[in-house]
């Protein structure tokens, strides 16, 4: 099952969470950042984000940052594996856009 899904598309939420974590960020920061870079189009629900963070941690695509003193909020950061996944996804998205534009004439 896991092998089968390795090449599948990322969800929009996961793609944007991974992009956000090129800089260390805590949960609320991710929500704000995703909203900002998508011009308010994507608004992550806290429950959805929590589930996604746990899954990404399990997969080793992101990792928790070592806790700084008196920082209550947990920061996360993308791993090398996570970056590879994002790069593969960008290639896939580029192919989609290329083909879409080629056929529709980009209109």
């Amino acid at each position: 099952m896991a092998e089968m899904t390795e090449r599948a598309a990322l969800t929009e939420a996961v793609y944007y969470i991974l992009l956000s974590l090129y800089k260390p960020m805590h949960g609320y920061g991710i929500m704000q950042n995703v909203k900002e870079i998508s011009n308010c189009r994507v608004s992550l629900g806290a429950g959805t984000l929590y589930g996604a963070i746990n899954t990404l941690l399990e997969k080793g695509w992101i990792k928790p940052m070592p806790n700084e003193e008196d920082s209550r909020k947990k920061d996360y950061q993308i791993t090398e594996l996570g970056k590879e996944t994002v790069n593969a996804e960008i290639l896939r998205l580029e192919e989609l856009i290329r083909n879409g534009k080629k056929i529709t004439g980009g209109e």
């Binding site: 969800t11 929009e12 939420a13 994507v42 608004s43 992550l44 629900g45 806290a46 429950g47 959805t48 589930g51």
Partner: peptide, 10 residues
Amino acid sequence: EFDIYSDIDS
């Protein structure tokens, strides 16, 4: 808007 779950899966 406050939604706990924002995608179909969750």
